[in-house]
Computed example of a mutant assay.
Amino acid sequence: MKAVIQRVIRSSVSVEDEVISSIGRGLCVFIGISRDDTKKDMEFIARKILSLRLFEDATGRKWGAGAKDRRLEVLCVSQFTLCSALKGNKLDFHDAMPSDRSQQFYDEFLALLRSNYEADLVKDGKFGAYMEVNIVNDGPVTVEIESPRRNKPADQQED
């Protein structure tokens, strides 16, 4: 599972020229689900999104607080292209979870994120739709996180 996290001043998602979700200051998170992802991957990514220190803390110290610490909004957008590989100049999606399974997985991920935070502060796009994502970056700050691979030795996996 992968997440590309952008610190934003504001962000919104539109489908067919209709804004379906928007946030103020917080995180816009693009989520890629691989075919072999498990609940453990989901839990890892959710924990990192909420605790990653990308904001100033209450004393103004940079990189001192996470979105959860600051009660900031999170906008999640499913993006299967994060699990693609290049074959020549063409994208190959064999590593992405098939859409019939990935929608349920994504919905479970959102439910987990909401249960570990404040549900009304976690928004999302429309799964499987052609979306227009508007982002006003803050910084810009962009971080990519990938869940640990199960074939990695235990001493090399992150918490």
Rank of each mutant, 00 (worst) to 15 (best):
2 K>Y: 14
2 K>I: 04
3 A>F: 06
6 Q>L: 01
7 R>P: 00
8 V>P: 04
9 I>P: 00
21 S>D: 07
22 S>W: 01
24 G>M: 04
25 R>N: 04
25 R>Y: 03
28 C>D: 15
30 F>S: 11
32 G>V: 13
33 I>K: 09
37 D>A: 10
37 D>L: 08
38 T>N: 12
38 T>I: 11
39 K>H: 09
41 D>N: 13
42 M>W: 05
43 E>V: 09
43 E>Y: 07
46 A>H: 07
47 R>D: 15
48 K>N: 15
49 I>Q: 11
49 I>P: 09
50 L>G: 14
51 S>A: 13
54 L>H: 10
54 L>M: 15
54 L>Y: 13
57 D>Q: 07
59 T>Y: 09
59 T>L: 05
59 T>V: 03
60 G>Q: 04
63 W>V: 01
75 L>M: 09
79 Q>R: 11
82 L>E: 08
82 L>H: 08
85 A>E: 14
86 L>Q: 06
87 K>P: 03
90 K>Y: 12
91 L>Q: 11
93 F>R: 07
94 H>K: 03
97 M>A: 03
98 P>F: 00
99 S>T: 01
100 D>V: 00
103 Q>P: 00
104 Q>E: 04
104 Q>I: 02
107 D>W: 03
107 D>A: 08
115 S>T: 13
120 D>M: 04
121 L>R: 13
121 L>Q: 11
123 K>R: 09
125 G>F: 08
125 G>N: 12
127 F>L: 03
128 G>H: 13
131 M>S: 14
140 P>M: 07
141 V>C: 09
141 V>W: 04
144 E>M: 15
144 E>K: 12
145 I>P: 05
147 S>M: 04
149 R>D: 15
150 R>V: 14
151 N>L: 12
152 K>T: 15
157 Q>S: 08
157 Q>H: 06
159 D>I: 07
